[in-house]
Design a binder for these strands. Structure first.
Lengths: 187, 187
DNA sequence: GGTATCTCATGATGATCATCATACTATGGC
DNA sequence: GCCATAGTATGATGATCATCATGAGATACC
C-alpha cells in the first residue's frame, strides 16, 4: 500500500509539468539553451527538486524529445486529417514562427545526432516515426510496409522546408519555400 | 608603413588556421560543443591569443559559418559540376557521415535561428546562398531571377534528406532517404 | 647586435552549470 | 493535535566557460 503525504498524483502532475515546459523550452531555445535551474524556475520550483523527477539532464531531454514527437503525431499528423491538411499545418507560417510547439526534428534535428546515446536514440525514433506518419498519410492501407520513396522524399522536403524557411530570415522567401513544398506533394 | 615583427603574413595564417579549425569543429560538434580554450588548443595555441584575432566568440562563429558556406559553394556546387554531380555529392553517404566537412545548413541549420544577430545573419546569408546555388544548377542562364519553386523545393529536399539520414541512425534507411532525394530532381 | 613592438602565454575574474547532500515543510494518517 | 515522510528548498562542490589584464618571447628594422 502506498502512503501519500501530498495530494494524490501530485508528483506525477509536477513531473508532467516539468516535461511539458522542457519540451517547449528546448524546441524554442535549443538543447544548450535550457538549464535545470532556469527550467525549474519557470515551472515555479527551485533546482533542487529536479533529481526527484529525472535521473539526470539527458533523461529529461530524451523524454522531452519523445513527448514532442508524440504531440506532433497527434497534432499535425492527427488521424482525422488528410495529407493536404497535414501539409498545410506542417508547412505553415505558424509552424515556422513557433518552433516551441512544432516538430522537434525541424526544431532540433541537426543537434540530435551529437547527443548522448539516450537522447540520440529518442531523436532517431522520432525521426523514423515522422517518416512512418508521412507514409501513412500517403496511403492509408500500407502502414506496415517499408516507407516508399515518395514518403521518404516528402518527409525530407517537409523538414528541409521548415528549417530553411526559419533560417532565411526573409518572410516572403520563407512563405515561398513553404508553398513550393506544399505543392510538391500533389505531383 | 606597417612594421612586421613576426614573419610576413604570420598573423593572417594563424587567423585562417583558427577559422578553418573552428569551421570544421563547429559542424562536427555543434555550436555549443566548441569552446575557445578547446579550439585554441587544437590549433596548437592557448586561449589567451584568441582575442587578438577575433572580436569575440560570435565574431568567430559568424566567420566560420560564412567560410563553411563558401567551401560548400566551391565544393559540391563547384562551377564545373552538373546538377546530377552536385546531387550525388550533397546527397551522399560521405556527406552524411562527415558533417564537419559538409554543408553548414545541414549540420547546424536548426540552431542558426537562435543565435545572436551577427551569427544569425551569417546563417541567413548562407541559406539564401544555398538556394541560389541550387537555382543556378537547375538553369544556368537565370542566375539573376528570383528562385523558382523547383529550386526552393529541391533545396528543401536536399537539406531535409541529409538531416533525416543523419538522424534515423539506420544506415540502410539513411541511404534510401538519400536515394529518394536524388531521384526527385529528375522529375 | 640592440631594441621596439607584434604575437602569444599565463593567470585571474565572475558567471553559469549539473549534480548532490542535507534541511525544511506541508500533508495525511493516527 | 502529533508524527512520519514525500516533495521541495537551500546551499555547496567542482567543473567549465568567455573575457580581459598583464607579462614574456620572438623578430624585423636600425
Amino acid at each position: 500500500m502506498i502512503i501519500m503525504r501530498y495530494p494524490d498524483g501530485h508528483k506525477e502532475a509536477v513531473h508532467q509539468r516539468i516535461l511539458e515546459t522542457a519540451s517547449e523550452a528546448l524546441r524554442s531555445r535549443g538543447l544548450a539553451g535550457v538549464s535545470i535551474p532556469g527550467l525549474m524556475k519557470s515551472v515555479g520550483l527551485t533546482h533542487g527538486g529536479f533529481y526527484a523527477h529525472f535521473e539526470d539532464r539527458d533523461d529529461l531531454v530524451a523524454q522531452a524529445v519523445r513527448a514532442a514527437g508524440a504531440a506532433t503525431a497527434a497534432g499535425a499528423f492527427g488521424d482525422s486529417l488528410t495529407l493536404k491538411e497535414t501539409l498545410s499545418r506542417y508547412l505553415s507560417k505558424a509552424h515556422v514562427e513557433h518552433p516551441g510547439e512544432g516538430c522537434v526534428v525541424a526544431a532540433l534535428g541537426t543537434d540530435g545526432t551529437r547527443q548522448a546515446p539516450r537522447v540520440r536514440g529518442a531523436f532517431a525514433e522520432v525521426a523514423r516515426g515522422l517518416i512512418r506518419l508521412v507514409q501513412a498519410k500517403l496511403e492509408r492501407k500500407t502502414s506496415g510496409r517499408a516507407p516508399s520513396d515518395e514518403a521518404l522524399r516528402l518527409a525530407s522536403t517537409m523538414v528541409g522546408a521548415v528549417v530553411l524557411a526559419r533560417l532565411v530570415d526573409d518572410e516572403a522567401l520563407g512563405e515561398r519555400i513553404l508553398r513550393s513544398a506544399r505543392a510538391s506533394a500533389s505531383e
